[in-house]
Design a protein around this nucleic acid. Structure first.
Lengths: 227, 227
DNA sequence: CGGGTCATTGACAGCACTCAAAGAGCGTGG
DNA sequence: CCACGCTCTTTGAGTGCTGTCAATGACCCG
């Protein structure tokens, strides 16, 4: 069986409705769209955070750099995800399009204004920030205490959950991106994936190494020690 | 010169006023106090988060455990700090008193209620969560990409900023706690501190290794690569 | 004074990193 | 259509930073 899947991910159910910010309910809010080419910067660290973004299609990486070039990716943003929510100050990450990516833009100012009077919007802003916090907390455990195999297993399970529900994962990001997300080198990531392939936990589909099918999620979960 | 300093830290200016939750302004809010002995659990991971806490005196560690016992401390909470703010669901960390610690308790339910009508309280809840998120994001960079020496330098600078403004740091936590915060072993932490001592960056005061004086903050900062 | 906890230091091991080479995939243009 | 260059991935060999194991020393408290 040969399945051909592009790096484009189908939109997920969640949306700006999560913020209570549909154009219908709040006509003030402008919902412009913009497309970024593969590899281009959407915003830089310490730039003023005038906009909040939602991925319509494509994928985005958010990262910090040390002065000597070491990079830590804090999160990947896939179709449907909202990112760049920095509570009105400045961006704490640099955001780049991993592949050609279309985003929707929301003015932070308008969000803030609505949150002032609408308690539900305020609650949703808080719960979205809390989700980001929870992800970061889990990721600290991974970065501080997990082995390379556990990290890669955890990554594959996370992507399996977040990418399309179908059985083939089309990863938009490179091995280097994965490595910088997991606090490893790209060689170590590649070796771990090869090892999982040898174990029969996953297989490759088509003619690229970016399309992975998980053959044994249970074994994969057992390789990622849970907290 | 011999200076004697206890592990008790003087209260910092910030308080529950940061949440707009003084007893004067909101008499609904109950502000009970409770004292935990050194090493005792304040709450466990996945327990319902009925209360929010503020450290009056002492110190607290928040951590996650893997099933085989590996531990990742996500944060230390010192005098004045608010912790256990989980957005009303369940706690995502276990919290333990590092030394004998007195906390103030606030019912989450009452906070939530007030936030519903008072936009300022809601804003403060959000900005407090954002602070926690920012700390976690910076810590991901440390855990994923910094060397052991950089981590220890960063830790000392963080504690220098957060503990008393005076020139002697009385660290309440053990080397093991520091190691589990920095994603290292206690031996590596000890070696790094010894190395910094050899470099003349820090000195020990009194008869314990928990009291550290920073002799050259600039050099210390240069050892922790900035982002 | 004695037992327990905590910190330091040394010797050695191992997991992940570095450096390097080869293979695979992809786009472009002749 | 294939050749070519470029990027990305895989794999190997060797190194090194941090972890492991162990012993000693310092401190605390009853």
């Amino acid at each position: 069986m040969f399945v051909r899947i592009t790096t484009e991910v189908s939109p997920r159910p969640n949306s700006l409705k999560d913020l209570g910010m549909t154009s219908e309910s709040n006509p003030i809010v402008s919902l412009n769209e913009f497309t970024y080419k593969k590899g281009t910067e959407i915003y830089g660290e310490k730039e003023p955070a005038d906009y909040v973004y939602q991925v319509r299609s494509g994928a985005v990486r958010s990262y910090k750099l040390l002065s000597d070039g070491r990079r830590q990716i804090g999160a990947f943003h896939l179709a449907g995800d909202i990112f760049g929510l920095e509570n009105g100050k400045e961006h704490r990450f640099t955001a780049e399009a991993i592949v050609d990516t279309t985003v929707r833009l929301i003015k932070w100012q308008s969000l803030e204004l609505v949150a002032e009077s609408d308690a539900m919007v305020a609650r949703n802003l808080l719960s979205m920030t809390t989700s980001n916090l929870q992800h970061a907390e889990d990721h600290m455990l991974l970065l501080g205490r997990k082995t390379s195999l556990e990290r890669v297993a955890a990554f594959l399970l996370e992507m399996d959950k977040r990418l399309s529900g179908v059985d083939v994962m089309a990863l938009p990001m490179s091995r280097r991106d994965i490595a910088d997300y997991l606090g490893l080198t790209l060689e170590t990531v590649s070796r771990a994936i090869s090892h999982l392939h040898d174990l029969g936990v996953l297989g490759f589909i088509g003619n690229t190494q970016r399309q992975i099918v998980l053959l044994d999620r249970q074994q994969l979960a057992s390789l990622d020690l849970q907290n």
